[in-house]
Each structure stands twice: as C-alpha cells, then as structure tokens.
Design a protein around this nucleic acid. Structure first.
Lengths: 170, 170
DNA sequence: AAAATATTTCAGAAAGTTCTGAAATATTTA
DNA sequence: TAAATATTTCAGAACTTTCTGAAATATTTT
C-alpha cells in the first residue's frame, strides 16, 4: 500500500534537501538547514531549539542565525516575560528569493561591473588585447541587462510578477 | 595622468575576477579561470599553455578542462599535423549563460521538485505537519514557475531574449 | 613493435571551510 | 551589585575541496 509519509520523516527529508541545495549555492549547509527548519515551524524557535533539532553546537547555531538575519531571511522575535530570543523565518517564498537576489547582486554583480569598467579601453595593439576588449565589452552589455532585469524583479511585488511576467511565458 | 591599463594587467584582473565569481557560484576557481582564459584567447590553447598561463599542474588543468567540456562551455579543437589537443571556449555570452542554466537546473531544480513531490500529502494531523505541508505546497508552485521560466529562457535564442524580454522591462 | 609524445588517473598533500566548546561579554533578575 | 541566564567570540579540531606530480594508459610516429 502507498503508505503516506509521516511528519517526522517528511521534515527530515526537507531539511536534508534544503541543506544540500544551499551548499550548491555557496550558502553553507547549516545556514540553509536552519532556514528550512524555521520555514516549517509554526512557532518561532529559540537558539536552543535550533541546536537540539539540528544537533549542532551553540557557536554554530549563533553564527548562522546571525548570518540569516544579515541576509534578511530571519527575524528576531521577543516574547514578553521571556529572556530568550526567538527566531522566525520569512515565509513568503517570493520575498525569500528577492532577499537572496538583492544580496547576491550586491556581492557579485556589482563588483563584476566595476571590474569590467576598470578593464575597459585597453589599447588594442595586438590580437590578444583586441579579444580581451571584445569579451569585456560583451560582458558589460550582458551584465547591465542582467542588472536591470534583477532590479526590476526586486522592485516588483509578488503579484505583479505572477500576473505579468508569468502570463508572458505561457 | 589617467594612464590606460595595459593588456597583461587587464588580463590578470579579468582572470582573477572571473575566478572569484566562480567560487561564489559553486564553480571552482580554476575551472572559472580556465574558462576566462579561453574566452579572451584569440586562438585555441593547448593544455600546456593553460598550465603555464595559470601556473597549475597538469592534473588540475586536465580535470577542469574536462569539466568545462562536460558543461558544454569548452570545445576540443584538433589541428592537422599536430598531435596535441587544443581548446576553445564558447564566446557567445548568451550561450554560456544558457549552458550554465541548463546544467544547474538539471543538478538542482529537478531534484528539488522530485523531493517536494515525495514530501507532498502528509497527513495534516498537527500544526507542525500543517506548516510543513503549506511550505512544501508553496515551494512547489514557485519551483514549477521557475522551471517553466528557465525552460523558456533556454529555448529562446539570444535575439528573441534581447528583443522581447528586454523591451518588457523598459 | 619500439620509441616518442599526449592524456588521464589518483593517492596523498595543501588549502579552504565549517564546527565545536569553552571562555568572554552582555543582559536581566533578585 | 551579585547571581543567574543568555549571547557572542574565537582558537583549534574536524571535515571538505582542490591541487600536485608521478605513474598508468593511450595514441602516434618511425
């Protein structure tokens, strides 16, 4: 019989999968797993709960929760009459993706555009220099387009995206 | 005086920048640098030239050139009367990006969709299970959309993309 | 078929990253 | 202000990834 998966097993699979995906994206495994755990938690969790659920040390939990907050993917939540801090993840997947785009764009695309500018305009006095110039020029065009596309995606809200953009590709 | 950068210096900056960008994307530094080197070379290069230019070992060069060929970003070129193999990079940046999308989609998005399907339909008999179901459901919707968007981008050719898509965001 | 040359493989070394756990610091309560 | 509790930091350990270089394999020439 096609026995339905139970919650515990589903949760574990999900944490695993999200952690693996994270590593492929240069986000570390634990950071991705903490994010996943918070995404599927109905309540906010304390650092201790995170440590226990994922079997990780206090230092590790602290560092990665902090990083998630820096990325704007996790918020602190204070409960009155409780000294601990609790953490809650952004659950709107579109907002999550948007935060990630913003962060990566800042870290990667912007520096790349800067360097391409610096390399522009080398004296084309040999085939090598010409080839370099050509590649740099094309990359600049492409990056600027990518840049404005991402800018647009970041500014657009979820509904606009689903409505307008998705209609286009039907 | 605003002295223009010379070719050697520009090349080095470019190789550095591309290598760094690669590591942020889970592509290893050397692989990215070999790709960059081939992108800005007017001629195809032998493994030996790559080794010498980037100061890397034969094994390293071989492994990463191989990986680049697997990704469809670099091709082998044979010269008549020469026993060595020469390598040349895909220089159309749009094709490069397309290959990368294809590869990453296969490695990441497809497995994620598969796992989300497996986790679907857990008995919602507690708030935890409900929250998991909700997250999984939303991720599935989002991933399918991302999937078809990428499918479209992959099928579209460069000109279509620049014309239609870019006009839309003006 | 032997010599010359080119390519691939892979074990161990080097480099890079992530994690632990205990100490330091900060904050709240009594 | 001292004790209790919570959070942060960070040196070294554990783990992961990447690289080297020499040996094995493959290919071409004589």
């Amino acid at each position: 019989m096609n026995q339905t998966m139970d919650w515990q097993e589903g949760k574990e699979k999900f944490l695993q999968a999200w952690g693996a995906l994270g590593s492929e994206w240069g986000i570390n495994r634990t950071m991705a797993q903490i994010h996943a755990l918070l995404m599927i938690s109905p309540q906010s969790l304390s650092a201790d709960s995170v440590m226990e659920e994922l079997k990780i040390s206090r230092g590790n939990a602290n560092m990665n929760i902090r990083a998630l907050m820096d990325w704007g993917l996790v918020y602190k939540e204070l409960r009155t009459g409780d000294r601990k801090e609790y953490f809650i993840a952004e659950k709107d997947i579109w907002k999550v993706v948007r935060q990630i785009i913003i962060n990566r764009k800042k870290r990667e695309l912007d520096p790349m555009l800067k360097i391409l500018d610096e390399i522009s305009g080398i004296e084309p006095n040999c085939p090598e220099a010409e080839a370099l110039n050509k590649t740099v020029h094309e990359l600049k065009l492409f990056s600027s387009k990518a840049d404005s596309t991402l800018e647009m995606l970041v500014k657009a809200d979820s509904n606009w995206f689903v409505g307008t953009f998705m209609k286009m590709i039907k």
